[in-house]
Design a protein around this nucleic acid. Structure first.
Lengths: 375, 375
DNA sequence: CTGTTAGCGCATTCAG
DNA sequence: CTGAATGCGCTAACAG
């Protein structure tokens, strides 16, 4: 094939809408060829001035800039990705953006880091479904993303597809057995210890626990914190006061009903997340008992309107947005070449004290107003 | 160049990690060439069996399938996108995923449609910032996405870049002057009419309004609904009872303080979104007045824990998830070739009646428990 | 039915 | 400093 020959007619590909003439881009988007033609230079020169790679004649550069502006030229990120074998995209794989403010905040933290550093972000809701999660991890490979931020659905998630494709992974909010990935989590043990320790020091004696599925690290860690706090206080662990539920309203509701039916019912409950806490609060309501008079309650995760609740719920707040920020930063450092051993960042939760766990001795009857105080 | 010549050494591109030998993919990911080699066929055959385009010999097909599985072959979506000039990706551009459950639900609705139909989704938070929004729309062009679902930050958003690039656009939740895009919105006028009509029929006489920035269609439509309802009830519009705020807690707080300082203060308030409603409720609290005894309140948008509020807030609920679903469907129909005139889908909000707007005449003193009832 | 080949838009090497 | 040529991985037209 001689390069002096006139341009050969294209064969592959969909019928080209654009003609090969010299007119400005008609049907679609301007390409580097259009810019080169308009500026009267070669495509390499265009590429060079736009990427500021090497020195180019300022006069040509100016012409290129002008042409690019005139044509509203936008370099194709897909072509560039193919050429560079590197895609300025992250995938964020979470369980469900709708379950409370936690994931929304987490996602936002990640997105802020991504945006600042020139990456865009696929949002993938895996719904705690290992198959859907696997499908999204495949997608990440197919899209050749630079990195994945993952909140694993279970403990079985297989990272090897990603690793072998050279895709960096950061685990956010939940750990994984796999020791190869950077991890950013909140200190759930400490959060639960604070929560239960608070109930202990406020005079509650029979403290129950409604936990989520112990297969998730969040639930098992919070349950550990519960046991630790009891142990520190010299209290025995009473299995009759522990219920394993499903992290949902209905599960919390049922578990609380069962706890209240116990012959010797608890005078307080630590609920492992706030969706279950909603159910638990309703169950207590329905039974005609009062909060905190009859049952003190501490939840876990943020609440939007705590100050406007009938009985403001004491709850442990994880720094969701900061978890997202930190996850983004760790991912970025890997992409930029950091090759050290896997890191684990642990952020501290804080206890937001409301009225639902007011001191036993001086509890007033009926609902009282009480603002929430961050400790 | 004769095709019979041995493979010429590559020139462009980053140093190839992978050797050109016959061994399985070492450094990176398997490509179609690896699969072809492993199966002993040409790359076109691989492409054909994987895309089920044409008839191929079942025996070869089987070999290809096997080879693909062995190599964990994942077709590159970026190469395919470049070739096909069509990217199976959408961009969703919203203001902020964290502002309450609305956007999270909306996003989820869109994502569900995208996932079902084989698209992935960029999540883009524009923060009501026209510059950031424009940057994300540029990105959509650069990534050659198939479609954009946009919640415009203002009324000035320029869709022409997208349109001229042949990218389909659906406006979600907010309208735009531009008549070229499909639009999916909730009926804000009707929602506000319901809300204010409800206050009227419950005996409130001086009904104030705290609205968001009237430059947004949501705010202006809800304000129109407010005026309509007053007018239908034969009430005059009193400018002293209208405050324009910023859709945020602080703005609602300040606006409510001002309203309560009026010489003839309102006995009810319609607040145009729930972030401002939080501020308004707090301001009423701080002033020592009761809800609904002294001031009835109706908000707008969903609340997660309405049943657990001290005084459950009456609020207008927009079908956020369904808005997302419908937006996704309209976008999909365009991508699949629908070329009819722009469509507008309007979904109906519903009024969730709580205790914050209880009938004037039979209002009891102090806080009462009251479940929320969807009407 | 299968293989060869061109080219999507771009960055980069090499020759000038 | 600039332009021509190559190929990233894939699909589709074309020739066998």
């Amino acid at each position: 094939m001689s390069s002096a020959q006139p341009k050969k007619a294209s064969r592959g590909g969909p019928p080209a809408v654009r003609s090969s003439g010299t007119e400005p881009p008609a049907g679609g988007v301007a390409t580097i060829v259009d810019v080169a033609r308009a500026a009267g230079v070669s495509i390499s020169t265009v590429s060079r001035v736009l990427n500021a790679n090497t020195q180019v004649d300022p006069r040509m550069a100016a012409k290129v800039i002008r042409a690019a502006q005139d044509l509203k030229y936008q370099p194709s990120r897909v072509a560039r990705s193919l050429r560079l074998r590197h895609n300025r995209v992250w995938a964020m794989v979470i369980s469900d953006i709708r379950t409370g403010p936690f994931f929304a905040d987490l996602v936002r933290g990640v997105e802020d880091v991504a945006y600042e550093s020139g990456y865009s972000m696929f949002l993938c809701n895996a719904d705690e479904d290992p198959l859907k999660e696997a499908a999204y991890l495949s997608l990440a490979v197919a899209e050749n993303v630079a990195g994945v931020i993952l909140t694993p659905s279970g403990s079985e998630t297989d990272l090897s597809l990603l690793m072998s494709a050279g895709i960096h992974v950061v685990l956010a909010d939940r750990r994984l057995r796999d020791p190869r990935a950077d991890t950013v989590v909140a200190d759930n043990v400490s959060g639960a210890e604070q929560a239960v320790g608070h109930l202990v020091s406020n005079g509650y004696s029979r403290i129950a626990c409604i936990t989520g599925p112990l297969s998730t690290t969040t639930a098992s860690e919070r349950f550990l914190g519960y046991r630790n706090a009891l142990s520190h206080a010299g209290r025995p662990l009473d299995d009759a006061l522990v219920r394993v539920a499903d992290f949902r309203e209905s599960g919390g509701h049922l578990a609380m009903q069962q706890l209240l039916e116990e012959s010797h019912r608890p005078d307080a409950v630590f609920v492992s997340n706030n969706r279950m806490a909603i159910g638990a609060l309703q169950a207590i309501d329905e039974s005609g008992l009062t909060i905190p008079g009859d049952v003190g309650v501490v939840g876990y995760d943020d609440i939007a309107w705590v100050g406007l609740m009938r009985t403001p719920l004491t709850t442990v707040s994880s720094p969701a947005y900061d978890l997202g920020l930190e996850s983004g930063r760790l991912l970025l450092s890997r992409i930029e070449g950091f090759t050290g051993a896997p890191r684990t960042v642990v952020l501290s939760p804080s206890l937001i004290v409301g009225a639902s766990s007011a001191p036993k001795a001086i509890t007033r009857r009926g609902p009282r107003r009480s603002g929430a105080v961050r400790t």
